[in-house]
Design a protein around this nucleic acid. Structure first.
Lengths: 95, 95
DNA sequence: CCAACATTTAGCAATTAGGCTAAATGTTTT
DNA sequence: AAAACATTTAGCCTAATTGCTAAATGTTGG
C-alpha cells in the first residue's frame, strides 16, 4: 500500500531550494549534466547532493545513466508538466 | 535564523495531501469555506486541520476572516500562479 | 451571566529530512 | 596491480513535521 501519492513525492521534491536549483541548472544546461558538475554548484558536501539527486530521481524528475566512471543526470520534464497541470486547474473556468 | 525562500514555503505547503485537498475543495466550493466545513473533510482531529490551515496561510495560499464565531478561509490564487509560472518556465523555448 | 459552540493554542511523541564524515564501490590511468 | 578518480552508501545527529489530546479563547443564545 503506497504511503504517499505521486503528487506528494513530486511537490516534496520541489520544495527544497537545492533541488529546484538542480532542476533549473539542468534545464539551463540543456537537460543533462554529470554528477560532479551538479555537486559543484553547492557549498554542500557531495553526499548531500547525491541524496538530493536520489530524491529527484525517486520523484521521477531526473534519471541517470552511467558513462564510464561518471554519471549523467538527465532532466525529465513529464512530472514537471504534471505539477504544472495540477496548478493550472485552479485557473480554468469551472466546467 | 529562518532562511527559507518564498518558493520553499510554497512548495512545502503544496506537498501535503491534506493541504492540497483543502485547496482543491476551496476552489471547487467557489473560493471560501468556514473552518468547520474544512475540518469535516478529514478523519484527522480538528487541531490537525487547524495546523494545516496555518501552513497554507503562512505560505500565502489562503487567508481568513472572522465572522462571528466562525472563521472563513479564503483561497488566494496568487501564489498558485507563482508556482505554476515557475514550472512553466521549463516548457518555454530557451530565450 | 452561563452554557454551548467554533476554533485555536499548547505540549507530547513518533517519524522524516537533511546536514555531516568515513567507508565502500566501480572505473580509468600508469 | 596499484593509485587516483567519480560517485554512492552507511550511519550519526539535530531540527522540523504531523499526528494526538487537553486546555484555552472568543462568540452567541437563553
Amino acid at each position: 500500500m503506497p504511503k504517499s501519492d505521486a503528487y506528494e513525492t513530486l511537490f516534496t521534491a520541489l520544495a527544497h531550494p537545492a533541488r529546484r536549483h538542480i532542476l533549473m541548472t539542468l534545464n539551463f544546461e540543456g537537460g543533462d549534466m554529470i554528477a560532479g558538475d551538479i555537486a559543484a554548484l553547492f557549498a554542500h558536501a557531495w553526499p548531500t547532493t547525491t541524496r538530493h539527486l536520489k530524491v529527484l530521481e525517486d520523484a521521477g524528475l531526473v534519471k541517470h545513466e552511467k558513462q564510464g566512471r561518471e554519471r549523467v543526470y538527465i532532466l525529465d520534464r513529464k512530472k514537471l508538466a504534471l505539477a504544472r497541470d495540477w496548478l493550472d486547474w485552479f485557473f480554468k473556468p469551472t466546467s
